[in-house]
Simulated scan of single mutants.
Amino acid sequence: MIISQINAFVPEKILDNKTLSKKFNVSEEWIYKRTGIKKRYISDMDVFQMGINAASSLNLDGVDTILFVSSIGAHYVPFYVRVFEKLKLKKLHYGIDISNGFVGFITALHVADVMFRENIANKILIIVSERLSELVEDKDINTAILFSDASVAMILENHDNYICDHKVMYDPNYLDALNINENKKIIMDGKRVYKFAVNNMKKIINKYIENYEKKIIVPHQANKRILESVKKSFNDLEFLDIIEDYGNTGAVSIPLTLFKTYGNSKIQLKDHLLISVGGGMTTSAITWRCIDE
């Protein structure tokens, strides 16, 4: 499975540590030490329009399936239907909106693999769009210093003998560590989220490296401290990391990392192990193996 085209939309408005330090009366160093983040991006557009902006420059010839991924689901009319209309696609065999929190992109790749193997789809447009700033309590320093907005669109094709190896782990002991309150805003126990993310990302990486050669690890860009803690246990593996300049963009963070690392070029997904953690608490990962193995 390859990403044959990929593009990102990152809003122009920047929320930096200087602005946040004044708002919450803390130092810029205090914020950076806890997050490893210098900049976040804030969008005035909704997730649908952000997604359209990311997809509009792609060559959509032959696209017959749309997967629209966002933590914020559509109302009544699915996003994929609106994408089909807005981008004037010529044919549509199938479409799904996927709202599965921060692990939504990995879920979409698993769905795409099934579609390819069952000959449902030939060429898939995946749009991943998050406006997490909309879900942040204005006075909550714990979430305001983390979350950011962005969208990524890509064309997915399957021309090889590889299929996905998808694993999911749940830990009900952490169900209340990351959730939504009555105002539909994110609430988070930072220490417990850190513990969950580090422990479970290590566990799931170990499950894969027992059976695979070295893969490039593309983790959910949640927090620099989480990423560094995981890296220490796998010194011989390469980790991709962009969180300093983009913040936590939820389900967008992995595809945004791919785009910022490789640009708009063909990306061989079989060379990578993608890992995400999200509210639930859920750990989800995916890589690819040869069918002939």
Rank of each mutant, 00 (worst) to 15 (best):
D241L: 02
V69T: 07
L60F: 05
D176S: 15
A197D: 03
I186G: 03
D97R: 02
S148V: 06
L240D: 08
L175A: 10
P172R: 00
H93C: 10
Y76V: 12
L132I: 13
A74K: 05
I31Y: 01
F9E: 09
F239S: 04
L274M: 15
V152C: 09
S276I: 02
K202Y: 04
T65D: 07
M281V: 01
I37L: 04
H220P: 09
E213D: 14
A112E: 09
A8Y: 07
N264L: 09
Y170M: 12
A222F: 05
S99W: 00
K195P: 00
G62C: 07
T107A: 09
K203M: 12
D271L: 04
S284T: 11
G190R: 07
H272M: 15
I106Y: 01
K215P: 01
F239A: 05
M169W: 04
E12P: 00
L227K: 11
N223D: 10
K123P: 06
T257P: 00
N248A: 06
N25L: 13
N211W: 02
I31S: 03
E238M: 11
N206K: 14
K231N: 04
I155N: 06
I141L: 13
K91S: 12
N59E: 14
V10Y: 04
K23I: 12
I243D: 03
F105V: 06
N199H: 03
